[in-house]
Simulated assay, not measured.
Amino acid sequence: MLDVTSIADAELVVLLKEGHRAAFSEIYARYQGLLYIYACKIVKDEDEAEDIVQDIFIYLWSKHSQIQFNSSLSAYLYSAVRYKFFDLLDRKKVRVDYAESLGKFLDTGVAITDEYIREKELANLIEKEIARLPAKMREVFELSRKAHLSHREIAQKLNLSEKTVKNQVNNSLKELRFKLGLFSILLFLFK
């Protein structure tokens, strides 16, 4: 078995790239403690520092044949700690942004949903009350409010006088205001 404890870092890297577990174990033994101390200084949290160092060594072993060491092993490992720290900051920022966004939604989203539901209920109630109007009054009202016809156009279409159309629209509005006014009061009381 190869004694790797006295081998230089550059040779350890060559052995690591070839898949020698002993080389990986020696790199871990040499740098784990130093990287942990360095990570603690940067992160200011021992658990997160430990996670960063473990992630680096997991990556180092899982990608050992693919990693390109453009500088020394120690420079690579210390740079990896810094990059992991920046990744951690990015993830925390995303969490904070998400939490803020969720908070804003909870503050306004519930009210919007409640208003939307109330609006739909009111629209349904209005439609029901319109359907309860006498047939001719309902027809005149729908032509006025839904088809957006003028009193003159409605009068011509239904062979009525403009005054009759005007009275029918006004009577429908009075009736709807009365019925929907009671609903509004009840809605306010049970809100």
Score class of each variant (00 low, 15 high):
G103R: 09
Y59K: 13
L60A: 12
R91H: 12
A75F: 07
Y38W: 00
V169Q: 05
G103P: 05
L158F: 03
K136A: 10
K163Y: 07
K157S: 14
A155C: 10
A147E: 15
A123Q: 13
L35E: 04
L125T: 10
N167E: 11
A75M: 07
S72E: 13
D3H: 07
I56R: 05
V140A: 04
E48R: 01
T113K: 11
L2F: 14
E50W: 01
R138W: 03
R95T: 12
N170S: 13
H20R: 08
L186C: 03
L133G: 02
I126S: 05
Q32I: 00
K146N: 12
L77Y: 01
D9T: 08
Y31P: 02
I37T: 06
S172D: 04
L12W: 14
E139C: 04
E121H: 02
E18P: 00
F183C: 02
A23Q: 04
D55H: 04
D47V: 01
D55K: 08
I154T: 06
T5W: 05
G19R: 09
L133M: 07
K174S: 11
K157E: 15
K136G: 03
R138H: 04
K157T: 15
L189R: 02
G33R: 10
L182W: 01
D107I: 02
K93R: 15
F190D: 11
F188N: 08
N170H: 11
W61T: 10
E50I: 00
I112Q: 13
V169F: 01
I37M: 01
K166P: 00
V43P: 01
P134I: 03
L182G: 11
F69T: 06
W61N: 12
L125I: 05
M1F: 13
I154P: 03
S65D: 14
K92I: 09
I56L: 09
I67A: 06
K179Q: 10
L34Q: 11
I37Y: 04
D3L: 08
P134R: 03
R95P: 02
M137H: 06
E139P: 00
Y31Q: 05
N159M: 07
F85Q: 10
S25E: 15
E121D: 10
A99R: 11
I56G: 03
L186D: 13
